[in-house]
Amino acid sequence: MNYTIKKFASMQGLTVDTLRQYEKKGIIQPFQDEENGYRYYSDMDVRIVSTSRWYSSLGFTLSQVAEIMKTLSNESLQSAFSEKILEQKRQIVYEEEKLKELIRFQRYYNLIERGEPFYEEVALPELLYLPHSMKDQLMQDEDILPYVRAWMELLPVTFYTRWVPKASIEKREPFHYYMALCISKENLALWPVPLPSCVRTSPERKCIHTILRKKHEEVLSGKHLDQGLLYLEKNGYRLSGDVMTMYISSRIEQGQKVNYHYAYFPVETE
């Protein structure tokens, strides 16, 4: 059976303009009636367009669909599917990371609102991180700025943190911290971000996870970690590495602006 372009578009739930894109890409080739000059589509075109739309639903562009429908070699098809599978895996991980962070930060806000002490033992995965020793200068160093920009494109798969060295915590003076962009080693397999020589590795480790509070005008110092360190001491833990923190939010409490950060204290059991 033959169909006019309007009838065919209506059957497929497509616009006439979209159907013409299928023709332009060579996916379908309607025949032209020599007597009246009209173009007509066949039942075979119905099957071809339906199959093409199925491939499009998998995330292939119309140009990619056109290549697939031209009966590529098995090797080319395998390559096309491998690329699409990797792309979908990345998208799934990306969406899962966003969902995880939404749930996590909602929990932080609930804990902050209740004002209750919060400590939990967790396993922090192996991380790769791009540090800068000059505190807040990470995004101003021209030597590593291209890497920083590349990593920032992957937020929230990558995340921006502040690290306080164990030695600085123990000695207190001078108190020092550095900023870093992080990505888990597991996610790095899906996003091969450029790795400059200054990248460091933090192994998977047991941590005490908590929330820090400080006045907005105060600079982070040892006293802001004291409650966490006291918890470690009382519960038989020993600090085993650099503490990782990240800003959560600011709020007004009793007329004063305060900042909240989450923190991971790497620990060993006494």
Rank of each mutant, 00 (worst) to 15 (best):
M1Q: 08
I5K: 03
K6H: 09
K6S: 14
M11I: 15
L14K: 02
K25H: 13
I28H: 07
Q32N: 03
R39W: 06
Y40I: 10
M44T: 12
T51E: 13
T51R: 15
S52N: 10
R53C: 07
R53S: 02
S56C: 01
T61V: 06
Q64W: 02
M69V: 06
T71A: 14
L72V: 12
S76A: 10
L77N: 04
S79T: 15
S82D: 05
S82N: 09
L86P: 05
K89I: 04
Y94G: 01
E95Y: 09
E97M: 01
K100Q: 11
I103Y: 09
R107G: 15
Y108G: 02
Y109K: 10
Y109H: 13
R114E: 15
P117D: 14
Y119R: 06
V122D: 08
A123N: 08
L127W: 13
L127V: 01
L128T: 03
P131Q: 04
K135R: 12
D136C: 03
E142S: 10
D143R: 05
D143W: 11
A150N: 08
P156F: 06
V157C: 10
W163V: 09
P165D: 15
A167W: 04
S168M: 11
S168D: 09
K171R: 09
P174Y: 09
Y177K: 03
Y177M: 07
A180L: 08
L181K: 15
C182I: 03
K185S: 14
L188E: 08
V193T: 07
S197R: 10
S202A: 14
S202M: 00
P203E: 09
E204Q: 12
K206E: 11
K215N: 11
E217M: 02
S221T: 13
G222V: 00
K223D: 09
L225G: 00
L230F: 01
G236H: 08
L239K: 06
D242I: 06
T245M: 05
Y247L: 10
S249C: 14
S249G: 12
S250K: 14
Q256A: 11
Q256H: 07
H261F: 15
T269M: 14
E270W: 11
